[in-house]
Design a binder for these strands. Structure first.
Lengths: 199, 199
DNA sequence: ACCTGAACACCGTTCAAGT
DNA sequence: ACCTGAACACCGTTCAAGT
């Protein structure tokens, strides 16, 4: 009886955080409802009370991923308030990559097709939008006269570069020492930011 | 007996092309040795004669992916011989995206972590390198005086952008009408190429 | 040499009970 | 209401035979 401390309403969270642990250890493909339930100490059917199916658990992971990203970017944006626009953008980029490299499996699940591709799980949108907005502000400040549409294009371009960089590094198509991973991306993105700042 | 036309040495290819069919229909996660073997008409154990395990089949798919990419870029490079350097780079970008959008599941498997992350399957490297070399040539021609190291950085930046763009489009983080997907990327990459061409 | 089939330890999901 | 356990139809992989 003592081990069943989850019947008080936090079983959902217990399952979720165990799932987060597991994917970082075993990789994003290794999520298994049964294994997660087993490690938490409940019957695998109990998990279905809180997650409709496996994809719903995956979506819950993605939600923490987008939220963590949005929170990190927002607080980074505040903290870099007194810096120059260019340095502020760079601080955001660094923070973005930092978070991704800290929890690669979660990052991959967050942007994975399983949860995003068919528009099920609209609850992911809010946090994703929040992260996006910070970037729009930052790029806007870097070139204040730019029309919003162009600023959004620039954000998409930079975001694409950062996202692709992460995946190419993880896939060993880009090889760079761990210590330099973030610094190297700054170098790759610099020409783009230069071009954006003075068109 | 008649249906067993695979015992003549082409079972490996039969399995491989059936696997390619299946992932485009059902998504990259849906590869199953048993299902592939079933559809080809052999016992699932027969597949193990040609692929050591499931990851080996996945790697074989990735090999066709890298090879297709390299071939497409090489022939595109030749065909665009008389164009200006900038137009040549754009032709390569277009071709790259075209191929990815034609067979998204294969593209994702090709650059997926399952096959690339641990350096098993070194046979993938050759084709990947071949594709990379075409891009290095193209970017080099766009700024002939650039040192090789900088040219390689520029290729990594552009490649990251293209790769990230694809995944963000597939994950519905970037929303763009099918007809405009390739054109829109040209617009996103333009500032970067401008900056690279005239530093 | 090459293919088969039973067996093992896993999945996700459904159904019918249990408290 | 919430949790359980048996059952179903799948996996990948191993082992021991079959031709």
């Amino acid at each position: 009886m003592a081990r069943r401390s989850y019947h008080h309403g936090d079983l959902r969270n217990a399952l979720l955080s165990k799932a987060l642990e597991l994917i970082e250890e075993e990789g994003p493909e290794a999520i298994s409802l049964r294994e997660v339930a087993r490690q938490v100490g409940v019957n695998h059917r109990a998990a279905y009370r809180h997650f409709e199916d496996k994809r719903a658990l995956t979506a819950a992971i993605a939600e923490t991923g987008y939220a963590a990203l949005a929170d990190a970017l927002e607080s980074c944006w505040q903290q870099a308030q007194r810096k120059q626009p260019r340095a502020r953008v760079e601080a955001l980029m660094d923070r973005y990559l930092e978070l991704a490299f800290e929890a690669p499996a979660r990052y991959r699940v967050t942007f994975g097709n399983r949860v995003n591709e068919d528009g099920r799980f609209p609850e992911l949108e809010a946090a994703a939008q929040r992260a996006f907005q910070v970037l729009v502000q930052a790029m806007g400040q870097l070139r204040p006269k730019a029309p919003l549409a162009e600023t959004r294009d620039a954000v998409f371009a930079l975001w694409s570069m950062a996202h692709g960089y992460l995946r190419l590094v993880w896939a060993r198509r880009i090889r760079v020492k761990q210590q330099l991973q973030i610094k190297y991306f700054r170098a790759l993105a610099a020409p783009f930011l230069d071009g954006w700042a003075r068109p």
